[in-house]
């Protein structure tokens, strides 16, 4: 058989195998849409016709109406306005701190996994020591002393304290990708370390990273809620966040039980946002999972 025949035979042999993944599904799209609306509102809040969150524009404790979509709180501030502006703080903390954690922990984790050896041992022992320490206590301690609290400070504290966790996840992902033969193959071709990390490892680690990023943002938003509950977030009269709105509502609800929108709306928004993040994160992971593509 001549070489030409081989070529023809092989060409016939390639069976069409277009990528067929399970469809993304309407529910995922709803979640994505919901996340997008929140982000858009947060970004565009100053430009949108949203009532000022700190202005006492109306009577306290008003019910839902066309003027006040979700009613007003016990100081007469518009709940919808406060929620919209509050998303800036909540999302800011979530995304900002994760940006720090991934910016530092991600590259370090991948580098440690690729290089192995002494570098990995030293970095991993430092990181794992920090991991062993309950970070929530550290965050609470630092934030109680580092006053006045601002968005930036909260982002930095949560961001830094999340580095070890991100490091561990990214290192594990890179370790499993790095043990594959294609990394060896790239070395054999003469690829240098940087090229291997960016071309071979990163694309295979990115899906894990992305879905963990979404989980991280969700966790941090919830964490901000906890901090606000403890009075360790930004003061509610400076800027509202979903967390400190819930904390505020809890206190006023004791006095005025019929003021339920005060607690229902921020709780519902926070809850739905975190749920959507987690759901999309999980869906992304399975969507990008190469092994699930093949039968």
């Amino acid at each position: 058989m001549t070489n030409n025949e081989v070529v023809i035979n092989a060409a016939e042999s390639v069976v069409e195998q277009p990528e067929k993944k399970a469809p993304i599904g309407i529910f995922t799209w709803i979640c994505v849409g919901w996340l997008a609306i929140n982000v858009l509102v947060a970004v565009l809040a100053p430009l949108l016709p949203i009532p000022d969150p700190n202005e006492m524009i109306s009577m306290p404790g008003m019910g839902m109406s066309f003027d006040h979509l979700m009613g007003t709180d016990d100081l007469g501030r518009d709940i919808f306005g406060r929620l919209a502006w509050g998303s800036r703080i909540s999302l800011g903390v979530g995304i900002g701190s994760m940006a720090i954690a991934f910016g530092v922990g991600g590259p370090l984790g991948m580098l440690a996994a690729y290089r192995r050896g002494k570098m990995d041992v030293i970095m991993s022992s430092v990181m794992f020591t920090f991991l062993a320490f309950p970070s929530i206590i550290a965050i609470i301690a630092v934030l109680s002393f580092w006053t006045p609290r601002s968005l930036g400070k909260i982002i930095i504290v949560i961001g830094i304290s999340s580095i070890p966790l991100v490091y561990r996840v990214m290192r594990a992902a890179a370790l499993s990708a790095g043990s594959k033969e294609y990394v060896t193959a790239a070395r054999v071709q003469g690829a240098r370390d940087r090229r291997i990390i960016f071309r071979e490892l990163l694309p295979n680690v990115a899906p894990t990273g992305l879905s963990f990023l979404l989980f991280g943002v969700a966790t941090v938003i919830a964490l901000e809620g906890v901090l606000a509950f403890l009075g360790l977030s930004i003061a509610p009269d400076i800027a509202p966040s979903w967390g400190n709105m819930i904390n505020d509502a809890r206190q006023s609800l004791n006095n005025v039980p019929q003021n339920w929108p005060l607690i229902i709306f921020p709780s519902a928004i926070l809850c739905l946002f975190i749920l959507a993040l987690n759901f999309v994160g999980d869906r992304l992971r399975s969507y990008f999972d190469v092994t699930e593509v093949k039968l």
Binding site: M1, N9, E12, S13, V14
Partner: peptide
């Protein structure tokens, strides 16, 4: 010894 090949692949 030249091996005989079966063109193509097992069916889907």
């Amino acid at each position: 010894t030249r091996l005989q090949t079966i063109p193509g692949r097992p069916p889907n």
